[in-house]
Amino acid sequence: MNNKKLNFKGTALRSSDIKEKKVLTTSWKPSLQYAWDDGVAIGRYLKELKNGKIIARKCKKCGRIMIPPRMFCELCFRPTDEWVYVKDTGIINTFSISYVHWDARRIKEGEKPFIPAVIEIDGASEGMGILHVLGEVDPEDVKSGMRVKAVWKSPEERIGAITDIKYFKPIIER
């Protein structure tokens, strides 16, 4: 590409042209709603989150303790065997620091970036994690391998959702 301005034929279209009805448009606003059945595994998981606990399922064949829990082991393809409570602490597997909102708007000056992270939970098998966000941490201090702990909403605020955990924060080692 050179810097010379390309001279395309035609007329440039601006959003104001649409608003002022200078061009023909048609629109449709869909109203699509779903109510997914949570089933056995996710139902119990959410119920336990409401109680401030994290629960996993164990497959006795491969030995994996899996979160989020599932009623079948997708690797062994057999039913999982038992419920296992795991801790609300873990290790950061990987993370990112996001400076844009979902619609690509940049965060405002002074606004804290969003730090999504996969946290391998203590008591679950290696590689088994929760995707959540980090808080009470400076972006430049976050590292893979860092130990973190869940910060829960108060019991009254919890509704049985993954957001019952507000975020994970670093554990200060003494």
Partner: peptide, 19 residues
């Protein structure tokens, strides 16, 4: 309605039987 099973658990039942 099948409120007792998630869509994953529903397919798992059919798959297990077929295999």
């Amino acid at each position: 309605t099948t409120p007792d099973l998630s869509y994953r658990e529903l397919t798992y039942e059919a798959a297990t039987k077929a295999y």
